[in-house]
């Protein structure tokens, strides 16, 4: 292994040291293989599927396209940070209840993306939801139950 680097990452509010990491490692790889945070998934590793979605400084990004070493100094939130005490978030709860989960490989990415969508737009139109989630591929559900879950959260948050 060449080009080893050492740096620190702030993930879900905790400080993590990353030591002797190959320079080319993506944030996704470091999360999964060095820090044991395997919730972010590795379906394409080219930014096309959204399974590895995380928030970096509040922005929804594909962690496979983030150079891990360059993420030092940012605040990273992964799917594991959205239900820290084990209680499901409203988005997670809705995805289960509405049947938005099948194989579930895309699910953590959708959880992060739907949180990001609804935090920025409390009541998206159906087409706004589609545009916001177009970067998250799902091969099992055909998206219908995922979109139903988004609607459920919108209703619940409306109160």
């Amino acid at each position: 292994m060449t080009g080893a680097v050492t740096y620190r990452l702030q993930i879900n509010g905790a400080d993590h040291a990353v030591e002797s990491s190959w320079l080319g490692e993506s944030l996704l790889y470091v999360l999964r293989e060095r820090l044991g945070l395997v919730g972010s998934k590795n379906a394409c590793e080219e930014g096309e599927c959204g399974s590895c979605s995380v928030l970096v400084d509040g922005r929804l990004v594909c962690s496979c396209l983030e150079l891990a070493a360059a993420a030092e100094g940012t605040e990273i939130i992964t799917v594991e940070g959205l239900s820290p005490d084990g209680t499901l978030s409203d988005v997670q709860e809705a995805l289960v209840a509405e049947g938005g989960v099948q194989c579930g490989f895309c699910t953590p990415g959708f959880v992060v993306a739907v949180h990001d969508l609804l935090d920025g737009n409390a009541s998206p139109s159906p087409l706004e939801t589609k545009e916001a989630l177009a970067g998250n591929l799902c091969r099992c559900t055909g998206y219908g139950r995922i979109e139903a879950a988004v609607e459920r959260v919108v209703e619940l948050r409306r109160g």
């Binding site: 972010s40 998934k41 590795n42 799917v79 594991e80 084990g86 997670q92 049947g99 989960v101 490989f105």
Partner: peptide, 23 residues
């Protein structure tokens, strides 16, 4: 009845262990 998936909770939390997650 449309009962919930038993693996739904782990899957939405990112805790479900897929074959590529093993270590």
């Amino acid at each position: 009845v449309s009962t919930r998936r038993p693996d739904g909770g782990p899957k939405v939390r990112g805790e479900f262990a897929y074959s590529s997650d093993l270590h």
